[in-house]
Design a protein around this nucleic acid. Structure first.
Length: 441
RNA sequence: GUGCCUAUAGCUUAAUGGUAGAGCCUCGGAUUGUGGCUCCGAUGAUACGGGUUCGAUUCCCGUUAGGCACCCCA
């Protein structure tokens, strides 16, 4: 580009230079080891548990979320990205996975396959919130759903166990698991009434938000952090005392399964979830220590009624989700390295000595890559010294050097960059020799 | 969505109502048959828009983004 064009472009540059949209973050090469580690762990644990991958589209009819997640919930009311198509349909970028997966379950007749269906999804979720550390407008969830079969607490425990294993695999030590049961259609309304009655009698002592919440979402009253409201919590009726026999047994059994596999938990009768469709067991995992402030690392619960609201039969179901960016934030804060063995040490650096060997080098690099060897190079550099400098900077374990002499002898110099020793190896033996040495690393 | 704080080079930062300085990184050279050390040199910045001013990176307003506390949540 000429300098004239360059100047012109500068003058006409937009007033505001481009930057990423608020709450949308780039995944950079330096983040990649974490992603590989986390996604790899989720995939391999899912395989062990027998969860199969499902991936519904990012866009669904907005109505799907209104019907399921709840019309009055924040996630739907305030945080959903909606758009109108040219045809007039109202669509939404998914603010969570569960409704889409439930929809797919019905649409593809999965209720006629073996039950329950164990499904896992990994992808982007969108919520229009004010960003903070561990909270973005586009983020990535590992989502687990167990659909169909019977409403057995063993599945609740299995879901929790999956996330417990995931955190353990990522070396996030002693997470805090909070558990509660929010009852069913029979017992929750009764509890709700008692709770409302209790708070109505103390209405004047409540904060402004909570006065509004009495009518919209009374269970949330138990979550308020205003000092005035805190005081009232102590004497508020607890859901755990008000569960019906079925729910109570279900919860007790779920706890027994967790005891059986030695997953520690804390009961938290104030734990309620932000989505309408939950019933019975709900859970949240937090990091131990100050990193707990980053927010729940995994959360979920049972949702036996959801399928009905979108036109299916009552279908027992339980699920949960974990946010990958939050897992990364915690791993970084706790200084947990993403990878045990450095990838660079498994690479080979190819260097040429002298311009005449460049083209031959290019061909040999391609040959090695075809044989499955990870090869780095900086063949555009002239001096051998500068090339090896690059190899050193990248922490690469071995270098191959090709000069006039080697071309003539049909060999390569194989240099161990850690020890500094080297030897000539015939080209037809180089692949085997490299594989032998690399596997020893 | 509300309130508070912040914004100088890729990163960490210095300074000032009057030419924006450094360390690390990057690139080149000393060194075209051998890396790590060293030395020399180069590139590169006041987020964006407006106002006050002779002059603004500095003061004021707005915007954008980030952080924190709410709200809520993975």
């Amino acid at each position: 580009m000429s300098s004239v064009e360059n100047k012109k472009e500068k003058d006409q540059a937009p007033a505001r230079s481009f930057q990423a949209v608020k709450g949308m973050h780039d995944v950079l090469p330096s983040d990649e080891p974490y992603w590989e580690r986390i996604e790899g762990a989720a995939r391999s644990i899912a395989k062990r548990y027998g969860f199969s991958r499902i991936e519904p589209p990012v866009l669904e009819f907005a109505e799907l979320y209104n019907k399921t997640s709840g019309e009055t919930t924040d996630v739907v009311q305030k945080e959903m990205y909606t758009l109108k198509t040219k045809g007039g349909d109202s669509l939404a970028l998914r603010p969570e996975y569960t409704p889409g997966i439930a929809r797919a379950y019905l649409e593809h007749g999965m209720s006629r396959m073996s039950q329950p269906q164990r499904l896992i999804a990994m992808g982007h979720i969108f919520r229009h919130e004010r960003p903070q550390l561990g909270r973005a407008r586009q983020f990535t969830q590992i989502d687990l759903e167990t659909l169909g079969g019977v409403s057995d607490p063993m599945y609740d425990a299995e879901t929790i166990s999956f996330f417990s294993d995931l955190l353990a695999e990522l070396k996030i030590k002693s997470p805090v698991l909070k558990l509660n049961s929010i009852g069913c259609r029979v017992c929750r309304p009764i509890y709700r009434k008692q709770l409302i009655a209790y708070y109505k009698s103390h209405e004047s002592e409540l904060c402004e938000d909570c006065r509004a919440r009495i009518d919209t979402n009374p269970l949330r009253l138990l979550d308020c952090k205003e000092p005035e409201c805190e005081k009232l919590k102590a004497d508020a009726p607890s859901i755990l005392d008000k569960l019906c026999v079925n729910c109570s047994n279900h919860f007790k059994e779920a706890l027994e399964y967790l005891d059986e596999v030695k997953i520690p938990y804390e009961l938290d009768p104030r734990l309620v979830r932000g989505l309408d469709y939950y019933s019975r067991t709900v859970f949240e995992f937090y990091a131990s220590g100050p990193e707990g402030e980053i927010g729940a690392l995994a959360a979920g619960g049972r949702y036996d009624y959801l399928m009905e609201t979108i036109g299916g039969h009552i279908t027992p179901a339980v699920g949960g989700a974990s946010g990958i960016e939050r897992l990364i934030a915690v791993m970084r804060a706790k200084e947990i390295p993403p990878n045990g063995n450095a990838v660079a040490a498994k690479r080979v650096f190819f260097a040429h000595a002298g311009d005449l060997s460049r083209k031959r080098s290019f061909a040999l690099v391609k040959m090695l890559r075809e044989k499955g060897i990870m090869v780095s190079e900086s063949l555009t550099k002239d001096s051998l010294g500068n090339q090896l400098k690059v190899a050193d900077k990248e922490g690469i374990g071995f270098a191959l050097i090709l000069g006039q002499k080697e071309i003539y002898e049909n060999s390569l110099i194989l240099r161990d960059l850690t020890s500094g020793t080297q030897e000539a190896v015939p080209v037809d033996r180089i692949v085997d020799e490299l594989k032998r040495r690399l596997s020893a690393k």
